[in-house]
Write a protein that binds this DNA or RNA. Structure first.
Length: 918
RNA sequence: GGGCGCUUAGCUCAGUUGGUUAGAGCGCGUGCUUCACACGCACGAGGUCGCAGGUUCGAGUCCUGCAGUGCCCACCA
């Protein structure tokens, strides 16, 4: 065993070494089990980070939580598969490479599509692994042999299969619709990729002259440049103000075009003048109204957000320049009625922040309602459980109000749409593989659709495509549905909802291997088409000021820097300890500093243990390490011979029991805090201190037992902690076995399972009395300003059952931990003395010859007495109420009575002491 | 416009189905070179649980209103 451990724990090298070992030994690789497998299975899909990504706190939190759950299951004997991979991230990656090209003074069009895509692959080969390398540093226990990339050939084939099937089922259609257009990215983007902001702007009121009348109709707009494309003015049928103008037309200013006045619900009488301009080509609402009234669609803004040839004299102007020019001209010609300050809702591109332009264009859509139905049902019926529960309602609201999904993107990087257009007859050939001739006319003049699919289209398929779909594989029988998905709220709609829709649709009729389903605890679930049984939505990590981290704000905390500074274990522990479900995490470095100290504490327990083991004959040590008896579900080879032994064993089992239920409910913070308090507050502060005399005993057998117990309990505690702090626990655990561990890694050892029989209430209450006594002496010593090293005599009057025997038996502990000599028992209550403390179980007197300032002492007694009297009053009035006694549960009333009794005894003692002082 | 959170010690946060004395870490004060650990040990100070009502024998916890604050969704010119 190591003799020369450094005093302070240095995580850097140790963590790197084990991370590498785990991967090299393929400890987390899961081969496909043959039929007949009866182990429970736990599958989890890593939400694929973008290939362009760098690890941020969100990933770190997400992966820490996943790794905790995954390691926990693995140690409990689940066949545990955690599938890693990366997403090709269409726009993000393309932008990255375009930026690179820009530095060379080139554009993607200079290269051409093929060369550009080759360039992206090259980029991916070079830099795409960065985020996974960072993951390895975190110790994420994923199966690296199954790593995927969303554009791998097999996954791409599955994407084409899905597209073709949906098309054949009539669930994919192509059409000219208003879409959100990003002029910078030059592509359509989905509704979800538009971020809405409210910014101060202007509302322009423009009057349109009514033809054949001297009247005007005034309309309002925040985007005056769109008026060039107006093809009607709408008023509401119920609006009496415009009754006389029905059937008439107006002359569109600047364009001198005659456009009709129509009656449409689009116009709300209560808003402004009640009249609204209609621009079907540049506004989603107007588009719908245009369809209702068969209006022409006149496009005036092009894909670069410049005015086009339909815009007359404004052609080629940027939309915002045109806006100013048009407003000036309207003013000059007397059509501008007014300009008001107005808060304008503005849609911006999620990626680049450019103001999105609603634009008419031909795109591919998924008809979403039929897919949503099953996806709604799966959640409503509890086939999928979403935690925290409030997200369930958010999910259902969204799914019930869902619009068709625009899936085409005018990008080059991505899954190209598997549709070929015939140059001759214009037929669209939708096919799994590139066709050689047109299915309609036989022409070989076929051009593949230039668009690619939205990234989320392919990632929405991952739960089954990573398991070999569309082939029917054994992997699917075993690992699908996955057990759990842990992810951030932000992608609930982008990704989670789509996975549910696709999973329910394409895996309908799928049945998980019944043996495995049963063993994994899913017997009550009816629907095996769902992509996962549970979804846990984790919180957002914010900075210490609760601000959302963002690059533009410059408040991003780099997890790698934190890791560098404090270690991965400490960082993981921080995130776990702060991750209460449903609330955001304000990341605070001082916490991580504290958990580094925790790692250091554990390290020093190891040093202490090894130091003591050195005193035992070498031949006995392997037996103490317990290679024969471990791995074991609980604490192996522990022989409780003393109160502290029974107590720590009880505490350990209680904590193990609590941790199990806390992790079951994703209450990471409670599990983490529970282990922390046990390790530091109980195991280190009390148990280790209490057993020191035994470790130093002259009796070899006693030393041997004490050492054995120490190793045994510490080893079990390491396993308990391992899912949260994998590195330090592995390091010490391996050291305990001197290079000959019973299994290759602590990660494969058994997770401690609570043994109810070892929970010992009597030991816990006895120990509490002892602790109370020791703390009381220390407290009095401090108050009396007694020299730290000076051993003082104490007197104790013990009452209550067995209190005296208890203290007698543990006299040595009290004397040592409280620096006491001559612990004496007296036969009557110790009311007289100063330097005294009373509790329900004992009166304590520290015998110390020192001039007591009577006044100070009186003050102290009064200060002690006050809250006691207050509480007594409280309890008395409470118990005096008939209602309370009648209605409150018996144990509450009983508890109150007991407490009151104790308080009364205490009060009497304090009062007598006060009287004695005069 | 709709929806959802948050407000507890100086700071950052816990506190599941209402139940006896509201907790932690950091920070703060006092004292300790105690032979595992100063990334430590011992002892301590510090809270009208945002405000106002209500339900209840009992409210940090449930309800209503108000005030701050944050987020998400939304095609109102």
């Amino acid at each position: 065993m190591p003799h020369d451990l450094p005093k302070a724990y240095e995580p850097g090298a140790i963590e790197a070494r084990w991370a590498e070992y785990w991967i090299k030994e393929k400890l987390f690789s899961v081969p496909t089990p043959p039929p007949g497998e009866t182990r429970p299975v736990f599958t989890l899909l890593l939400p694929p980070p973008n290939v362009t990504g760098r690890l941020h706190m969100g990933h770190m939190l997400n992966q820490t939580q996943m790794d905790i759950i995954v390691r926990w299951h693995r140690m409990r004997g689940f066949l545990t598969l955690w599938l890693p991979g990366t997403d090709h991230a269409g726009i993000a990656t393309q932008m990255m490479v375009e930026r690179q090209l820009a530095k060379e003074g080139k554009k993607r069009s200079d290269l051409g599509r093929e060369a550009f895509i080759e360039r992206v692959w090259e980029w991916k080969r070079h830099y795409g692994g960065a985020i996974l390398d960072q993951m390895k540093r975190l110790g994420a226990s994923v199966d690296w042999d199954r790593e995927y990339f969303t554009m791998d050939e097999n996954l791409s084939r599955a994407v084409r299969e899905v597209f073709v099937r949906l098309y054949e089922e009539g669930l994919i259609y192509r059409g000219k619709y208003i879409v959100n257009w990003c002029p910078r990215c030059e592509t359509a983007i989905s509704d979800l990729e538009v971020k809405h902001e409210e910014v101060p702007g202007k509302l322009y009121e423009i009057r349109y002259p009514v033809i054949g009348s001297s009247e005007f109709i005034t309309v309002a707009t925040t985007r005056p440049e769109t008026m060039l494309g107006d093809t009607a003015v709408a008023v509401n049928e119920a609006d009496e103000r415009y009754r006389h103008l029905r059937g008439k037309s107006v002359l569109l200013p600047l364009m001198k075009r005659e456009i009709p006045i129509i009656l449409d619900e689009l116009a709300k009488p209560e808003f402004g003048t009640g009249a609204v301009k209609v621009t079907p080509a540049h506004d989603a609402n107007d588009f719908q109204a245009g369809l209702r009234h068969n209006l022409p669609q006149i496009e005036v803004i092009d894909e670069h957000a410049r005015m086009n040839e339909n815009a007359g004299v404004y052609a080629r102007l940027d939309r915002f320049v045109a806006r100013e020019r048009i407003v000036e001209d309207l003013q000059a010609q007397g059509f501008l009625v007014g300009v008001k300050d107005y808060v304008v809702p503005l849609g911006k591109c999620d990626r680049c922040g450019t103001v999105v332009e609603p634009r008419l264009s031909t795109q591919w859509f998924v008809k979403i309602k039929p897919l949503a139905e099953h996806a709604i049902e799966a959640v409503e019926k509890g086939e999928i459980t979403i935690v925290p529960e409030n997200y369930k309602q958010i999910y259902l609201n969204w799914m019930n109000n869902i619009y068709d999904w625009c899936i085409s993107r005018q990008l080059w990087w991505g899954h190209r749409i598997p549709v070929w257009h015939c140059g001759k007859c214009k037929t669209m050939v939708v096919a799994r593989e590139a066709p050689t001739k047109c299915t309609n006319c036989g022409s070989a003049d076929l051009q593949q659709d230039t668009d690619v699919l939205d990234t989320w289209f392919s990632s929405g398929l991952l739960p089954f495509t990573t398991l070999g779909w569309p082939e029917k594989t054994r992997d699917q029988e075993v690992f699908y549905p996955t057990a759990l998905l842990i992810t951030a709220y932000e992608i609930l709609f982008f990704w989670v909802a789509r996975m549910i829709m696709f999973g329910c649709h394409f895996m309908a009729g799928h049945h998980q291997d019944p043996l495995i389903k049963q063993a994994s605890g899913w017997a009550d679930k009816k629907d095996d088409s769902v992509p996962f049984r549970n979804v846990y939505i984790h919180a957002l990590v914010r900075d210490a000021e609760r601000q959302k981290m963002s690059k533009t704000k410059g408040n991003v905390i780099d997890p790698l820097e934190i890791i560098e500074q404090f270690g991965t274990d400490a960082t993981r522990f921080t995130l776990a300890a702060m991750a209460a479900p449903g609330t955001d995490i304000a990341f605070n470095e001082s916490r991580t500093e504290g958990y580094r100290a925790f790692a250091n504490k554990i390290w020093n327990v190891a040093r202490f243990m090894f130091m003591n083991l050195d005193r035992v004959e070498a031949s006995l040590r392997p037996a103490l390490a317990g290679s024969e008896t471990r791995p074991h579900m609980g604490v192996a080879g522990f022989e409780p011979t003393t109160l502290e032994d029974r107590w720590i064993l009880s505490r350990f089992n209680r904590v193990a029991r609590d941790v199990a239920s806390e992790l079951e409910d994703y209450r990471f913070h409670e599990a983490a805090n529970g282990i922390y308090d046990f390790f530091w507050g109980e195991f280190c502060d009390w148990y280790l201190e209490l057993i020191k005399p035994r470790l130093n005993s002259a009796d070899a057998a006693e030393v041997r037992t004490a050492c054995g117990n120490l190793v045994s309990l510490f080893e079990a505690a390491l396993r308990l902690l391992h899912p949260i702090m994998p590195f330090i626990t592995e390091e010490i655990w391996q050291a305990i076995y001197e290079g000959r561990p019973p299994v290759k890694s602590i990660a494969l050892a058994a997770y401690p399972q609570a043994d109810e029989k070892q929970i010992d209430l009597a030991a816990e209450t006895d120990m509490a009395v002892l602790q109370d006594l020791i703390v009381s002496v220390r407290n009095l010593r401090a108050e009396l300003k007694i020299e730290p090293k000076m051993r003082v005599p104490i007197e104790i009057y013990a009452h209550g059952n067995g209190t005296r025997a208890l203290i007698e038996q543990n006299r040595g502990a009290v004397e040592r931990l409280a620096t006491v000599e001559k612990l004496a028992f007296v036969e009557s209550s110790l009311a007289k003395q100063t330097g005294a403390r009373s509790t329900a179980r004992f009166d304590l007197h520290v015998v110390y010859e020192r001039k007591i300032d009577v006044e100070t002492e009186r003050k102290r007694l009064r200060r002690d007495l006050e809250p006691v009297e207050k509480e007594i009053q409280n309890k008395e009035s409470q118990l005096g109420k008939e209602q309370f006694v009648a209605k409150a549960p018996a144990h509450v009333v009983e508890g109150l009575r007991k407490r009151l009794e104790e308080l009364r005894i205490l009060r009497d003692k304090l009062k007598r002491q006060l009287d004695e002082l005069g």
